[in-house]
Design a protein around this nucleic acid. Structure first.
Lengths: 155, 155
DNA sequence: ACAATCTCCACTGATGCAATAGATTTTTAA
DNA sequence: TTAAAAATCTATTGCATCAGTGGAGATTGT
């Protein structure tokens, strides 16, 4: 049920771009994202490139180059990012909306597991589609206001 | 976000054992589970052995041998099964209850991604812990009563 | 004794993940 | 116009995990 590191990096990078988003066409250097989030620069490069083909970010080349969100942060959801980087959000592909695949069980329509997995998928999709990068940036800004270790809740 | 095939097989096998569960000490042969669910026998063997060490099933050897649930189906949740076969239910391990691990981001307490992932984890855990094998078996029995393809909803 | 079953351990082939590397192109500033 | 900084593209590598296979042995019922 885990996200790949690749997917996690993608979200963390988008969080940075969303946090620093401005209406003009200012860009953020890979270098800077990499440093802020402890992500290997070369690897991040690949990920951002993927997100570019996906239409999530755009890039500017050259000495003053870098990346920026292609659309306004409130037009990009976490679901979109993960679907492009990782594929299906559904825990099993026989309940996936966008990546459906038949599974090996004898009768999908009578599979109780499948019914539960569908519930699970609905929950996951709901959270991921409801969360936009704009909301994420707001949350990040709110967290920055907090005092150091407000009660560093470890789970 | 996907379950491994291994995890899916584990759930499907447990569904069979739960469906056919009886209070006496009757067992189901691997052979039979394998045939009912289209799971490679040898592979299933490994999985059931794992679930035995985990205390979910017990086995009886010899000619009339097989597997049965070690506890009553209402005492076993899907969460328990997946945690033993796959590990953490959480999408990223920095929000895992049982398998917490520090992540590479600069400050977990101010990570907005983490806050969202926590929400997601709560949803997942809620569904998986709320669903017992007994509930699964009930659902399976209900689905068996349905006419063929009541409206084979494909997603 | 025999056959059916579980048990244990090892192995393999494929795949994908995470990361690294090198060469190239584009852009801007000096 | 040249050099530096940045993105781009392609390839490859080491590694781990996954999914599945294989064989020898132990246990049990008849």
């Amino acid at each position: 049920m885990k996200l790949s590191v690749r997917g996690e990096y993608a979200l963390r990078a988008m969080q940075v771009l969303a946090r620093d988003y401005q209406e003009d066409d200012s860009v953020v250097r890979i270098q800077e994202i990499s440093a802020k989030q402890n992500i290997p620069k070369r690897f991040l490069e690949q990920i951002l490139n993927d997100l570019k083909s996906a239409g999530v970010v755009q890039s500017k080349r050259g000495v003053a180059g870098g990346y920026r969100l292609k659309r306004s942060p409130d037009q990009i959801t976490l679901a979109e990012i993960i679907r492009h980087i990782e594929g299906p959000l559904a825990p099993v592909s026989c309940v996936s909306e966008k990546y459906y695949e038949k599974c090996s069980c004898p009768d999908e329509s009578r599979c109780a597991i499948r019914a539960v997995m569908k519930e699970l998928r609905d929950n996951i999709v709901q959270v991921m589609e409801a969360t936009t990068l704009a909301a994420l940036a707001d949350r990040a800004r709110a967290l920055e206001q907090q005092p150091i270790n407000p009660h560093d809740f470890m789970i």
